[in-house]
Design a protein around this nucleic acid. Structure first.
Length: 882
RNA sequence: GGGCUGUUAGCUCAGUUGGUUUAGAGCAUCGCCUUGACAGGGCGGGGGUCGACGGUUCGAAUCCGCCACAGCCCACCA
């Protein structure tokens, strides 16, 4: 099959433009059929990446595109470097996001979540998941992702769920999980607690209300400033700063809460800012984090005035049942009417909003499950600080350390149904047991209670676990390393090698995975973390659905080809830097595809004959062979440093500038002339090597051309051949070629300036005794009749310097003396300026005394070179003047 | 408010313990070329007092101080 294709493409007129859509699907299918993506443990060194699981019902956006392109490059390269590469794909159940989508979908059908039982709701959720799930994985295939699809996981599939329950029970048994009343960020719309990380603070134009609290047994008032007058119904104290001279008269008194008419004490704490408002603070322990801390400290009563949906409860008195914001408006009027409102000022403050529902969050006391973090954080912090786990770029180390050193306990419960239900079972007469299954819980319960108990008496906690509580196990759970800690896969693939993710989730996910890794495998879960930037639009705005500024990656792939888009994403994307995306970048990627395609057309179009190899071709091959090795070394080094964009640029220049613009031109036979066999074969070998180096970046076009480059057996693929290795090369020879290129460049410039067509053959004189081994190449590339060694250049020759050697192109009457003089003078002025700066340096005694000897020697050499060049120039100028 | 980054050509970025011609790359821009791989091309050019000001040094884009601006993270004064 492959050979037929090979013959066809050889005979056929190849199209002048590369058509990606024709080839991409074909090769992806070919790779799948041959199971090239699949990995099983063997004797090779493993290379493992686990995908950051996208939301199960999500669709591919530009961020995924960038993230997965990088992973695919790393995986494909590792595979070609001889490693057993395994990239595990999967999806995340994304409890809040998915539940929100299902609720919204049900709402369009007129169904309220509260009308459904948990089981009914979950049926809808699973239906939704099956319908929309996995789309994103299919989209990943379009970009060429070489994931081991046989290993696809879902955070809520059987094994992953089992892992979650096991870990919960284990941590509970280790006394790291506890239940407690805490002030949480309550989302009254989603009716769930949110982590601090899920709250966005926004500036709001609000009001600052000054309220009068009558002093008990006196005529006076304490005036208190607040932004939230509705919370006075939950006030259980008023607090002043003990060092505040303004409020000494309040010490030890009691005041009456307006409207509620309750007496509350005045307490003293230096938490209160003397400068703010009146220096008096109302304390509402149930509805403000800081007030809660004061409440704990002074043992104040806690009065919760809200229902879960943000309306007021019975403590809200006459306002019971009203929404919190309606109450704020009403209470302002009522206070005013009662003469208890001193004044109202405009005030700008920051209010927390739910990341998911965009509703103002309500600090609320609530019974939640927590995971103690201090003990878990310790090894995770050390691992990053001592580089057992390296962050790329390393600037994130500081951020990481700061968070880990100030870590707070993780609230792991969420008031949702879609997710892993907390495996805690309440007993009929109080207390609870924690166990992975209801049966185990029952057994455990029987041994703790001394009353008759049936399994139906157990009531499982209604809440779910935070989504991250399953994803923090991901590098372990995808290999089933929690359930079967000794299994072959986990032993072989763990620790994974690289993690590629966005810096936004360094705490949500990365830090927690590291903790889980040490807790459950006593090893790092990966060795390197590569943070890709955030994809922004041209104006620097984050791409988002609401702004509508995000292109659909699939559209881009259709327009520019997957390889083109991959290149576009990576071209200006150093690790950790945001990527201002512009489809122009994909144009550059597509143009490069086309360049490769056309280079292939050229080479494949050559007629091969049994003729002698020209000297220039022999030299060109020697040169490119060396350059290839040198560049491979550079690329390897860049990959070691995770500088992927720079590695890509090195390959890009190697192919475009060095191979296409120089090498191919050097060996190209004259029009309709054949090429010698030796040169042809060397060129095909170079092409083969270049395609291999390019493959991780551009998998499709490289496969297409590699298959067509030579006759291939079936089941062969570029993706499983080895990456070219650097050989030793002669650096001197490479720099000699650079000099030859400079000579050629100078002659080209002369042609351009004198309007001499490339077809016209020129002569070249060189004023030196040294031989240049590359004359044959120069003659060919510059279209020269020959190179003559002379002691004095011809009259009417245009000269130039390369290094300290002077070259001259005789042009007869063609020389414009004025122009020539001006050009030479410009160069002379530059060199004299340069010489002056060098001489100044060298005549500075302190420089000569203090600088390293090699630096001084180098300056002397610069001086000699400049002097020699100046002399040559002056001679040329004199000669022209005659 | 606290902390961490950063500021180099129109744009995106390199610049490796201070010295390698008077700062580089890709893209963009400009000029010229153009039947023989490729106009999605070739060749050539222009463009930066390295954010500002001080300091250390024989020598600073590079080290130190201060300032300005930007981005991110943390906190969240009622």
């Amino acid at each position: 099959m492959q050979s037929i294709y090979y013959q066809l493409i050889n005979k056929m007129e190849i199209a002048s433009k590369y058509n990606p859509s024709e080839v991409e699907e074909k090769w992806y299918k070919y790779w799948l059929e041959n199971k090239f993506f699949h990995s099983e443990p063997d004797n090779r060194e493993p290379y493992t990446i686990v995908i950051p699981p996208p939301n199960v019902t999500g669709v591919l956006h530009m961020g995924h595109m960038l993230n997965n392109t990088i992973q695919d490059i790393l995986v494909r390269r590792a595979r070609m470097m001889g490693k057993n590469a395994c990239w595990v794909p999967g999806t995340d159940h994304a409890s809040i996001a998915t539940e929100a989508k299902v609720v919204a979908k049900l709402a369009t059908e007129g169904i309220k979540k509260t009308d459904l039982t948990r089981e009914q709701f979950l049926e809808h959720a699973w239906e939704w998941t099956h319908k929309h799930g996995g789309i994103i994985l299919e989209q990943l295939k379009k970009l060429g992702a070489s994931c081991d699809w046989d290993r696809t996981c879902f955070t809520m599939d059987e094994k992953r769920s089992e892992s979650v329950y096991k870990v919960f029970v284990d941590l509970y048994n280790k006394d790291l999980i506890y239940r407690g009343v805490r002030m949480v960020n309550w989302d009254p719309q989603a009716k769930t607690a949110l982590s601090d990380e899920e709250v966005n603070y926004k500036e709001q134009q609000g009001k600052l209300y000054y309220l009068r609290y009558k002093i008990v047994g006196e005529n006076g008032c304490a005036v208190i400033a607040t932004t939230r007058p509705e919370t006075i119904l939950g006030d259980t104290a008023v607090c002043i700063n003990p060092n505040d001279p303004k409020n000494v008269q309040l010490k030890g008194k009691k005041v009456i809460v307006p409207l509620a008419n309750r007496e509350v004490p005045i307490i003293e704490d230096d938490y209160v800012d003397v400068e703010f408002g009146t220096g008096c603070l109302k304390v509402t322990p149930a509805h403000d984090v800081n007030d809660y801390m004061l409440g704990e400290k002074y043992n104040l009563e806690i009065l919760d005035i809200f229902n879960d949906n943000g309306t007021l409860n019975q403590h809200g008195l006459q306002y019971a049942g009203m929404d919190r914001f309606a109450v704020r408006k009403q209470i302002e009027k009522d206070l005013e009417a009662a003469g208890l409102l001193e004044k109202v000022e405009a005030y700008t403050n920051k209010v927390g909003f739910s990341e998911r529902t965009d509703v103002p969050i309500e600090p609320k006391l609530s019974m939640q499950w927590f995971l103690k973090m201090e003990q878990l954080a310790k090894p995770a912090l050390d691992a990053v600080m001592n580089d057992d786990i390296q962050l790329h770029p390393p600037k994130f180390k500081n951020t990481y350390r700061h968070w880990m050193e100030n870590i707070k306990d993780w609230c792991i419960s969420r008031q949702l149904w879609w997710g892993h239900r907390i495996p805690a079972y309440f007993l009929p007469q109080g207390g609870f047991v924690v166990a992975a299954t209801k049966e185990e819980a029952y057994q455990k319960a029987l041994s703790t209670v001394n009353y008759p108990l049936s399994i139906e008496d157990l009531r499982q906690d209604e809440d779910c676990l935070d989504t991250w509580f399953s994803s923090w196990l991901w590098p372990i759970s995808v290999f089933d390393g929690i359930n079967e800690p000794e299994n072959k896969d986990i032993q072989y693939y763990y620790p994974t090698n690289d993690l590629v993710t966005a810096p936004e989730i360094i705490f949500f996910w990365v830090a927690r995975m590291i903790m889980a890794g040490y807790e459950y495998r006593h090893k790092p879960c990966f060795h390197n973390v590569y943070f890709n930037g955030i994809v922004r639009d041209k104006l620097g705005r984050k791409m988002s659905k609401s702004l509508g500024n995000s292109p659909d990656p699939i559209d881009l792939i259709n327009e520019y080809g997957a390889d083109g888009v991959r290149l576009g994403m990576l071209l200006t994307s150093p690790a950790g830097n945001d990527l201002p995306f512009d489809s122009e970048l994909c144009v550059q990627g597509r143009n490069f595809s086309n360049k490769i395609w056309n280079a292939f057309r050229l080479v494949k179009g050559w007629e091969v004959a049994d003729i002698a190899q020209p000297e220039s071709s022999r030299l060109s091959i020697e040169w490119f062979d060396g350059l290839l090795s040198k560049t491979i070394e550079e690329i390897n080094d860049l990959f070691d440093k995770y500088r992927l964009s720079e590695a890509l640029m090195a390959v890009y220049k190697l192919f475009w500038d060095e191979f296409s613009s120089w090498y191919l031109e050097m060996v190209k036979p004259a029009y309709q002339q054949p090429i010698d066999k030796k040169t042809y074969e060397a060129t095909l070998n170079f092409f083969d090597d270049l395609l291999r180096i390019l493959h991780p970046f551009m998998p499709f076009i490289t496969e297409e051309l590699w298959q067509a480059l030579a006759e291939r057996k079936s089941e062969e693929s570029i993706m499983v051949v080895s990456m070219p290795q650097a050989k030793t090369y002669k650096a001197d020879f490479l720099s000699e070629v650079e000099k030859a290129k400079e000579i050629i460049g100078n002659i080209r410039t002369i042609r351009l300036q004198k309007n001499i067509p490339n077809k016209e053959v020129l002569g070249l004189e060189v004023l030196t005794v040294d031989d240049n081994s590359l004359n044959s190449v120069i003659i060919k590339m510059a279209n020269l009749s020959g190179i003559a060694k002379v002691e004095e250049k011809s009259p009417g020759a245009v000269s130039f310097l390369v290094g300290t050697t002077e070259y001259a192109v005789p042009l007869g009457n063609n020389v414009n003396v004025e122009e020539e003089l001006e050009k030479l003078n410009t160069e002379l002025v530059y060199l004299q300026g340069f010489l002056k700066s060098v001489v100044a340096k060298l005549s500075n005694e302190k420089f000569v005394a203090n600088a390293k000897p090699e630096i001084v020697d180098n300056e002397r050499k610069k001086q000699a070179d400049a002097e020699s060049k100046i002399k040559t120039l002056q001679e040329s100028i004199e000669a022209l003047k005659i």
